[in-house]
Design a protein around this nucleic acid. Structure first.
Lengths: 243, 243
DNA sequence: GTCTATAGTGCGATAGAC
DNA sequence: GTCTATCGCACTATAGAC
């Protein structure tokens, strides 16, 4: 059986965006039903529209000047909702932070495992994992940047979740590298350090977004380069993909 | 003429720490004389001691929960200085941020250029630049982390300085790579992207410090690995250093 | 379901005692 | 040179009108 991701033609970003189907509306509908206890507004259509507005505005303002620095008055002004209306959707500023954080984590896990599991050959798996991660962070750049910057403002329990998420991503790469090592497809001394530098490169894509935009480097160009770097250190010349 | 950095034995971290002679006291003495206008305390010994205390405490608290979230009452409590005493050393919380930011930038420029200029061969220059940058960020980790995280809280003029600093570091690597390309010592297609991933790896060392500490990876181990990664993509097998 | 008005808190900054 | 006391302000969060 051959899945779409195992054909010779690799997935590119435009295809990913369609596959992922990450609609802000769907996400907000999920959040609405999960938090119905603390959300005073009961009509789905209204709640979903306002939640999308609140989250997008929060991400925008926070990524400009930080979540703590953004006052709820700022959020009220920028979103067009009054202070009272805002408090119909969360019980405290901290809860707003948690809602945004949780939803992103869940979505990340879901999308990444969907893509990796579809592939069986280990060298393809490595390429797909790098590509899928970059594409995901491209679609959800504001959330990834927000999550990266605001981790230290979370309570201890939520901070632990963030750290676990980071280490899980790295573990995924360590596992792929180790599997390739056992199959003699890869040749490398230090899977942990190798996975760490992959993670560092993937992170730079969403943390230093302004740099790549300014230089007009596309996500596909960057993905190709990261794959080139990693293949250079774990594969010999003739086994490298032309992808 | 052969300088210390061009002997076969490469500089290691212990040596760098001694060479750099980055004493907190010296830095604070510089700051004291530069800001004598706004500092009310006139006795050097007292001022230098208190400035060191203020800066160290600010870096510690800010790196835990962010500069904006740290109130001056927090700083007063943790440093043992009263609110009034704090305001003898800066005229506003924003000025405190600027003082810390400026001093770090100046020191970074000074130390980096000192080390790179001492080397002539381009492959050595690349290695020394990577090593010196990592060693510097190791010595001044709290400042680099602080600077990275708080850039968005600076005013426009200061933000521009931060961006210029980042791009200057990258340009240094682009120049070294281009020089090596012209001399046919390096072989690579994209100096800009290559410099960018070098920067991403160097940045991870001070941004994700907790990860490397937990895994007991030393700065020398990390430096060796980054150099290995970069040499793998810009040099063929036989020209690579055993460093 | 959303608004305005306001209570209560803690902030940055300063004046004046010692 | 450092302290305590306090001012004015902006914040989070809520109560009650519509």
């Amino acid at each position: 059986m051959q899945t779409a991701t195992e054909t010779l033609q690799p997935m590119r970003f435009s295809e990913f965006r369609q596959m992922a189907l990450i609609s802000m509306e769907d996400i907000c509908r999920e959040i609405f039903y999960e938090n119905q206890a603390s959300i005073k507004t009961k009509k789905e259509a209204v709640a979903v529209r306002n939640l999308a507005n609140i989250f997008n505005t929060t991400l925008r303002l926070s990524n400009e000047k930080g979540f703590q620095t953004m006052s709820l008055r700022d959020l009220s002004r920028a979103s067009g909702l009054s202070m009272g209306a805002l408090y119909s959707y969360f019980t405290s500023k901290e809860e707003l932070l948690e809602m945004i954080q949780n939803q992103g984590h869940r979505l990340t896990r879901r999308v990444l495992s969907q893509h990796i599991e579809a592939v069986s050959k280990v060298d393809q798996k490595l390429r797909i994992a790098i590509r899928a991660h970059l594409y995901l962070t491209e679609v959800m750049q504001p959330w990834f940047y927000f999550s990266f910057m605001e981790t230290k403002n979370l309570d201890k329990a939520q901070q632990k979740k963030s750290i676990e998420g980071e280490l899980a991503t790295e573990q995924m790469f360590i596992d792929i590298l180790t599997e390739g090592l056992e199959q003699s497809v890869f040749e490398l001394d230090n899977p942990v350090l190798t996975a760490t530098v992959i993670k560092a490169m993937l992170q730079d894509w969403y943390v230093k977004r302004w740099k790549y935009s300014r230089r007009r480097i596309s996500v596909d160009e960057y993905a190709d380069f990261v794959i080139f770097v990693i293949e250079s250190i774990v594969m010999d010349n003739q086994s490298r993909s032309s992808q």
